[in-house]
Write a protein that binds this DNA or RNA. Sequence first.
DNA 1: ACCAAGAAGACAAACTTAGTCTGAAAAGGA
DNA 2: TCCTTTTCAGACTAAGTTTGTCTTCTTGGT
Lengths: 137, 137
Amino acid sequence: MQITRQTEYAIKILIELAKSPFGELIPSKLIAEQQDIPGMFLQKTVQLLSRAGLVSTQRGIQGGVRLTVSADKITTADVITAIEGPLALNLCLSPGYSCPNMADCQVRRILGRAQAALLHELQQESIADIVEGKLAK
Amino acid sequence: MQITRQTEYAIKILIELAKSPFGELIPSKLIAEQQDIPGMFLQKTVQLLSRAGLVSTQRGIQGGVRLTVSADKITTADVITAIEGPLALNLCLSPGYSCPNMADCQVRRILGRAQAALLHELQQESIADIVEGKLAK
DNA sequence: ACCAAGAAGACAAACTTAGTCTGAAAAGGA
DNA sequence: TCCTTTTCAGACTAAGTTTGTCTTCTTGGT
Ligand code: SF4
Ligand code: SF4
């Protein structure tokens, strides 16, 4: 019932990118230092974010990572989905899984409600909000 | 980001118990058959519920498991806590963990909010509600 | 050509989960 | 008392997941 270390890294990466002007290229090595993330692992994480379309990368000298979506459009839910796949509180709540009881299972329904509540909150929270510290409602 | 198989078993166990009159002893073997849970594993799960005070057990012939708390007082949150320990969406949100950044970490705060939302929903949902099918709000 | 990045994937160590096995202990009945 | 049924406890194992590392390749700029 936890997000993975990698997901937290991903959030931090996006935060770090959001601190610079939109679209600026930041070398991953620099992010690694700033946020204290193992270098190679960070790169893998960046790739996942890249495949999810949240960032794009540039190779070669002066290369790096940059946001492709403005920070206020990226929600915590998006990040979790990009790294861990669709949010699912139970097997049967993840797409493509099938359980014989699925149709009328009360357990599934109740977990589905909890998941919806969680998802709703996660979708409220953008990276920009985190950077700007808009937390106390 | 999922509940464990064991936690789902635990919910099912409590549902099964809640179907009978309050306080009735049900042998674990019967629960195992009804809910299709591996016998030995079910027993370990019952023990966790027992230690959490949600059920009590009786050994020997005619022994079994019984609720000690009425089903409408047991929430999904209680069950998860009993099996997995306190709900924590991230390391630093679980009691006893300390991270140097904890004091002013924005990531932590935002995850804390999400966790609170989830917890709130889970605390609304009782075992009795599940059994009686009070799901559509 | 050369160098500074990222891309890709194989690999591995550590941890977690799910489940089994074995033996002990309790409760009740013959 | 002895036997059966049931839970209790813990060691054990197999499989899967997480969190990395290592190596090699590709790309882009100078
Ligand atoms: S039994 Fe219900 S909760 Fe469990 S996996 Fe099947 S549908 Fe989901
Ligand atoms: S850095 Fe922030 S979110 Fe991550 S563990 Fe520390 S306090 Fe928690």
